[in-house]
Design a protein around this nucleic acid. Sequence first.
DNA 1: GATGCCAGCTTGGTATCCCAACTTGGTATC
DNA 2: GATACCAAGTTGGGATACCAAGCTGGCATC
Lengths: 221, 221
Amino acid sequence: MSQMQNVERQLREMILGLEIGPGERLTERWIESRFGASRTPVRAALLRLETEGLVGRDGRGWTVSPINLAELEQIAVYREAVEVAALRLTCRLDDRSGIDVIEAMLASCDDTTPREEWHRVGMDFHIELARLSGNEFLFRAVRDAMTRLSRARWLEVRDETALHRAWAEHHAILAAVRVGDADEASRLLSAHIGGSRERLVTSLHDDRRGLRARGFAVVAA
Amino acid sequence: MSQMQNVERQLREMILGLEIGPGERLTERWIESRFGASRTPVRAALLRLETEGLVGRDGRGWTVSPINLAELEQIAVYREAVEVAALRLTCRLDDRSGIDVIEAMLASCDDTTPREEWHRVGMDFHIELARLSGNEFLFRAVRDAMTRLSRARWLEVRDETALHRAWAEHHAILAAVRVGDADEASRLLSAHIGGSRERLVTSLHDDRRGLRARGFAVVAA
DNA sequence: GATGCCAGCTTGGTATCCCAACTTGGTATC
DNA sequence: GATACCAAGTTGGGATACCAAGCTGGCATC
């Protein structure tokens, strides 16, 4: 593994894992010493992460992108458009056996599974579902949207009931895809994403004070 | 203007303008000497252009992305999803006066306008229409898709009639948006994009031999 | 004590150097 | 003539040196 990919991967993990807080300043020299790399791979990593929206330029200098409420709502609209489009493509495929793999993925979570794993699988559900469509651009759009959302997603599900409801919705979507009912699958997916957005925005709004107290920059809608 | 942005912009223009042929190899050192910059900004530019899909890695080394017929078809599906989503958002806005600006943009082309300008305005129509939605992600998705299509678009319109028909469709879409008829606007836009895809693919298929003769790499569907 | 100013430090941007991996061309060997 | 092999060159990845701009802290001035 090259240094470049290494720095990129580790830095992304730190940002997504909130080990570096949203809004925090980053200096190339700090990253350099933190990961034991020189500035060349550091800059490459920053340029990449910038296109993912995880870091941004702050005049001179770099900043971990703040959590932006308005942006999260826009992403929800965006992902609904691309996820539904991908889903409709998938429903028209002759071979939809790929949903079995996704079904198995969902089933891999049980009561003993740590919360963090549920989150990851919940995201992967949407990503893999989009991948089934075979359209590389729709897939990437969903993957990138989920990446951007992932820092905020840990806020979303606190209670078990909401989590299990989401899982039931995932299964229902797969069932509709299995029988090729594009309209029903789309309706379910739209509702699922809408509900997710709703919970996310509400939860984030409620927790803004707490986030700010932890030093995280949160931009209001 | 910093060197970094300079190299990026000039290199992008050369690639989009087919001054560097699809499939051509690029070396960092050649770009360096060509634009009188050092390798640092060159590499920053390449990393950027890679995320735009204009250049790619070829094992070790860089290559101008070939024109990929399958990719173009996938982009057409992708852009239809995001453009229609953006259009529907726009139709729900209270203030849709932005379409006047777009209308004026269309009107700026007449029989004396060079062919290249028609192309640019035709692309900008879709980009600006998406911008009206106010959704940054849908807007960027459309802009990036149009960028990727732009190298192939010059193939599309040879005859005047097809060009004028496209313009008529543009006007019809705007008219539907103006009165807030989302369903009609979406239908027209979908048909417009579908027709565009059809002509593009046909034209590209017919010209593949010619493109290859010019040394351009073209990947079949 | 408030304020203006300057030296020094920090920062990202750029240039340049080094290196390992790979390519290439020629050559010695059979 | 075919082939194995080696030397020289090329390439991208990485490290480092240097620079201009901007920030900071402290000192002189009022």
